[in-house]
């Protein structure tokens, strides 16, 4: 009886603590969402107030109109295409490369791995121009190809992540399959890939968001306003040389959160489900 009430009490404390921390965590986001329903003065001068004094829905209409006759409908569609294709491509290519680097033995494997890590160590700022010149000389600018093509060729961040997850898959499984007559190709499809599910899911969530949020790439490789992504459009609100329409900007920032959040919600359930049987028990 006593221990039961303690358990219930513990559970309540657990939930309350998490909710409080959670509130602190999302406070800035709530602030942004509430800003999407305020006008400039309310945002700048009454910033601590989370509840908008008047619900200014016209921010959304004004923001959605976009710039120079191109509306956010187009910007969202463009972002979806780029982020969607890139994400799918990253998952497939990175899984293949990770399998090669972590499970197979051949000459030059270590060198390839070192080169891959090295590509992460140079700041993008100095690679921007040479990369642009290269794609331009291939006649691929302006187009979305420079934005998606690299993802078909593996992304170091995710290759390495998948490698680390593969390190958690017992080698005995491969060996057993091999004895059963499964080729090295088959092992990838039937053993590794299915067991890589958690890593694949985190890749989808993170990569989709990164591409969605990427500003520099679209800025450099796209040119017509009709091809702009959401990230470019959001920056257009905040030209430093003139006054900013914060309400409209916050409204569109809020909308731009929704797709990435939905992707997260959808895939996150595959990370949580089943943990009850395999994870820690409270």
């Amino acid at each position: 009886m006593n221990s039961k009430t303690r358990k219930v009490l513990n559970r309540y404390i657990y939930h309350v603590l998490i909710l409080i921390t959670g509130f602190i965590m999302v406070y800035p986001v709530l602030w942004m969402i509430s800003g999407s329903l305020k006008n400039n003065t309310e945002i700048l001068n009454d910033s601590l107030n989370l509840i908008p004094p008047h619900l200014r829905w016209d921010n959304f209409a004004r923001g959605w109109k976009g710039f120079g006759g191109t509306s956010f409908r187009t910007f969202f569609a463009n972002s979806f295409i780029i982020a969607g294709i890139s994400t799918a491509a990253t998952v497939l290519s990175s899984a293949c490369i990770a399998y090669s680097f972590s499970r197979l033995k051949y000459l030059g494997r270590k060198l390839l791995f070192t080169l891959m890590i090295m590509t992460l160590l140079l700041p993008g700022q100095v690679l921007l121009i040479p990369q642009y010149v290269l794609y331009n000389s291939l006649g691929l600018v302006p187009s979305i190809i420079p934005l998606i093509l690299p993802h078909f060729l593996g992304q170091a961040f995710f290759i390495y992540q998948m490698m680390q997850f593969m390190a958690g898959i017992p080698r005995e499984l491969d060996e057993a399959a091999f004895v059963d007559g499964c080729s090295k190709y088959g092992i990838f499809s039937y053993i590794i890939l299915p067991l890589l599910k958690p890593a694949v899911i985190t890749t989808i969530i993170i990569q989709f968001y990164w591409k969605w949020d990427d500003f520099q790439g679209p800025l450099v490789y796209l040119s017509k306003p009709q091809s702009y992504t959401v990230s470019i459009a959001l920056k257009l609100f905040a030209d430093s040389s003139s006054a900013t329409d914060y309400g409209a900007m916050f409204a569109m920032s809020t909308l731009s959160l929704i797709p990435v959040f939905l992707i997260f919600l959808f895939f996150n359930q595959y990370l949580t489900e089943g943990i009850s049987t395999s994870g820690l028990k409270g």
Partner: peptide, 20 residues
């Protein structure tokens, strides 16, 4: 095994030599 290794690493090799 080494062939399989190169086949699976091919995207990276192409990407590295071609674009990086």
């Amino acid at each position: 095994e080494s062939t399989v290794g190169y086949v699976f690493a091919l995207p990276f090799i192409i990407g590295f030599l071609g674009f990086t």
